[in-house]
Simulated scan of single mutants.
Amino acid sequence: MIAAAAAAPVTRAQFTASPSLMQVRDLIYKTAGIFQSNNRLRFLDEQCHKRMQALGLRTMRDYFDCLTNKPMARGELSSLLNEITIGETFFFRNQPQLEGIRNVVLPRVMEAKSRMHMRHLRIWSAGCSTGEETYTLAIILLEESKSRLKGWTFEVLATDLNQRSLAAAEVGGYGEYSVRNIEPPLPERYFRFEGNQLQVTPEVKAKVRFTRLSLSDDAA
C-alpha cells in the first residue's frame, strides 16, 4: 500500500521590509504617535504602494522623500494616515464600558460639577473614527437628560486624525452592521431611515463637534 504524500501547507512568503519602509514607519511614529509593529509592516508596505501608484512614484525611497520634502509632505502624510488608521467601530460597542460611564463616571463628574455650581458637561471622544461610539455617548447623555441630567447641558468633542473617517462621521449615516447593537426604542428616537441606512437625527448631531487632531499633537 502506497500512502499519498500530504500536500504541503500553503504559507504566505515571509516579508522583508526595506530600509526606506522602516524610515516611513519611524516617520509615522514620530509625527502621529502611531507605531506599526513588525507584523503590520506588510500592510504598511501595501498602503504605501497604493499611494505611490497614485503619485506615479517608483521606489519606496522616492515615497519617503515625498513624505519629508515640502510642499507635498504634510498633505501626503495625511493621505497615508487615512489609509492605515481605519478601525472597527459600531454603536454601543463596549457595554461594560458604557455601564461604567453611566454608573460610575457620570455620577462622580456630576457631583464634582455641582460642588462648583456648574451644570454643564464637556466630553472628549478621542480617536472617534467614523462616529458610532461618539454618537453613542451623545445618545446616552440625551437619555440621561430626561432624569438625573435634567436641567444640565452637555457637548461632545470628537477628534481623529483620519479625515475620511471624520467626513463620514459628520454625515452620520450608518448601515446594518454599525447599528446592530441598538435596542428599541432608541432607533425610533434618535435615527431616521434614509434608504437602506439609519441617519442620526439633528438633535444628536447638535451635541457633537468633530475636528481633526492627533493625540501626539501639542494641542492634545
Rank of each mutant, 00 (worst) to 15 (best):
A6S: 14
S18I: 03
S20Y: 06
F15H: 08
A8I: 01
G33A: 09
T11V: 15
L41P: 05
R40I: 07
T16I: 15
Q14S: 11
I28L: 11
S20P: 09
L21K: 02
G33I: 00
A5E: 15
T16L: 15
L41C: 07
R40K: 14
S18C: 00
P9R: 04
L41D: 08
S20V: 01
A4Y: 10
S18V: 01
A7S: 14
P9N: 01
N38M: 06
I2S: 12
S20F: 04
F35I: 02
D26I: 08
L21M: 04
A17L: 07
R40W: 02
Y29C: 03
V10C: 13
A3L: 11
S20C: 03
A5C: 13
I28E: 03
S37N: 07
Q23Y: 05
T16W: 14
A17P: 08
I34H: 09
D26S: 13
A7Y: 00
A5L: 15
L27F: 02
A6E: 14
A7C: 13
I2A: 11
P9F: 00
R12Q: 10
T11D: 12
M22I: 06
Q36G: 05
I2D: 06
R12H: 10
L41W: 08
R42E: 13
Q14V: 09
R40G: 10
L41S: 02
A32G: 10
V24L: 05
R40L: 02
G33V: 06
A4G: 14
K30T: 06
I28R: 00
P9M: 01
Q36Y: 06
T16N: 15
D26F: 02
Q14G: 10
A4R: 15
P19Y: 00
L21S: 01
F15D: 09
F35K: 07
L27S: 07
N38P: 10
A4S: 15
P19L: 04
A4W: 09
M22F: 05
M22R: 11
K30W: 00
P9A: 01
A4N: 14
F35N: 03
R40A: 08
Y29T: 04
A4I: 15
S18Y: 03
F35E: 10
T16V: 15
S18G: 03
I2G: 07
R12D: 12
A6P: 02
F35D: 08
Y29V: 04
I34R: 13
A13V: 04
T11C: 12
N38A: 11
R12G: 07
A13R: 10
V24K: 13
T31K: 12
Q36D: 02
R25V: 04
G33K: 06
A4E: 15
M22V: 06
D26V: 08
A3M: 12
I2W: 02
S20A: 13
F35W: 09
R25W: 00
V10R: 14
K30Q: 11
A7W: 00
A6Y: 07
K30I: 01
R12F: 04
S18D: 05
L41Q: 09
R42M: 04
A6H: 11
T31E: 07
M22W: 08
G33S: 08
T11R: 14
N39F: 09
L21R: 09
T11E: 14
I34N: 11
Y29H: 07
R42S: 06
T16A: 15
T16Q: 15
Q23G: 13
F15K: 07
R12C: 06
